[in-house]
């Protein structure tokens, strides 16, 4: 299993260049924009920029994503390819305000 995993690690690092990039900013524990739209069945690179001094954790149960973004730093999160639908995400450290969603649109 480890060998298989390693093989996947070696060959899995592919096609980053053609991936669309979407920027999300975190400011005052809010996501800007709070709603992002991405095309269906496409891998997308989210560039999350944290403008707050405190850390935030980008989390989404629907997207199966979880990542700590330190204060005044940025982070890259790959999502997709996804079927059409709505995928909420939130900041785990400030979930009452840091709320957003990814809307996947069928083209």
């Amino acid at each position: 299993m480890m060998v298989l995993g390693l093989g996947l690690v070696l060959f899995g690092h592919y096609s980053v260049a053609g991936t669309p990039v979407i920027e999300i900013e975190i400011k005052d524990h809010l996501f800007f924009p709070a709603t992002i739209e991405i095309p269906a069945n496409t891998k997308v690179k989210l560039l999350v920029i944290n403008r707050d001094l405190t850390a935030e954790e980008f989390e989404s149960y629907e997207l199966n994503r979880e990542k700590v973004i330190s204060g005044n730093r940025k982070a890259v999160i790959f999502i997709g390819p996804l079927p059409p639908g709505e995928y909420p995400f939130f900041g785990e450290f400030y979930p009452k305000t840091a709320q957003g969603k990814v809307v996947v649109i069928d083209q």
Binding site: M1, L8, G12, H13, E62, N64, K67, F78, G80
Partner: peptide
Amino acid sequence: ASQATQLLTQADWLPYSKILWDSS
């Protein structure tokens, strides 16, 4: 093993694979 796989998929080091079920 499953968490490590999830993280490596998130980092795009492992390819995307389809969602097997949805019990949410």
